[in-house]
């Protein structure tokens, strides 16, 4: 997937046939991450205002359900995802890209959780098994598409692709 041009605030991307399959596979998983299942929240001091965090969690879940509907609508919209030969042309405005980044990162974080939360800094090296290997792949694919969108917004970055 690569940026073709930006016109009147619309970013037009070229998707190859492979992109259509791989991006579709990534997006199929959305929504994937949830705050309750996120081990990151158990590694830090308990957040203050737990009741408000519960409300935030509910709002996030509702937002993701709406996000799934929005995503389905986008994937069906031939104006915005137009077939081009064996590939496609995807047209997104700035707001779409912000939302699309959230979608992709949700899949990345959700895949990381299902892959066993690898964290080399903490001595948990990635150890793909037959069951978890697809999640490692999905995690990296989501990162790739995130980087394409970020590069379209900001241009190339020396830190691009580095994981924290």
């Amino acid at each position: 997937m690569r940026l073709l041009h930006i016109q009147s605030g619309h970013f037009v991307f070229r998707l190859t046939a492979r992109d259509r399959v791989l991006l579709g596979e990534v997006l199929r998983h959305y929504p994937m991450a949830s705050h309750e299942a996120d081990p990151r929240s158990r590694r830090t001091p308990a957040a203050e205002n737990t009741s408000s965090q519960t409300l935030l969690d509910e709002a996030l879940a509702a937002g993701k359900a709406e996000g799934r509907r929005r995503l389905d609508a986008l994937l069906q919209d031939r104006q915005r995802l137009a077939p081009r030969g064996t590939g496609a042309q995807l047209t997104l405005d700035r707001n779409d890209i912000e939302w699309f980044l959230q979608v992709l990162n949700d899949v990345r974080v959700g895949s990381w959780i299902r892959a066993g939360c690898p964290d080399p800094d903490q001595g948990r090296e990635p150890r793909p098994t037959q069951a978890t290997a697809p999640f490692f792949l999905t995690m990296e694919l989501a990162a790739y598409y995130e980087c394409v969108l970020l590069e379209a917004l900001h241009g190339p970055s020396p830190a691009r692709g580095d994981s924290r």
Binding site: N105, R108, D121, C147, L150, D162, S163, R164
Partner: peptide, 17 residues
């Protein structure tokens, strides 16, 4: 908080937005 999954460039972008 730090985590091993979010990309540095992504975190920078989110802070900007």
């Amino acid at each position: 908080w730090n985590d091993p999954v979010n990309l540095m460039v992504y975190v920078t972008h989110v802070f900007q937005v």
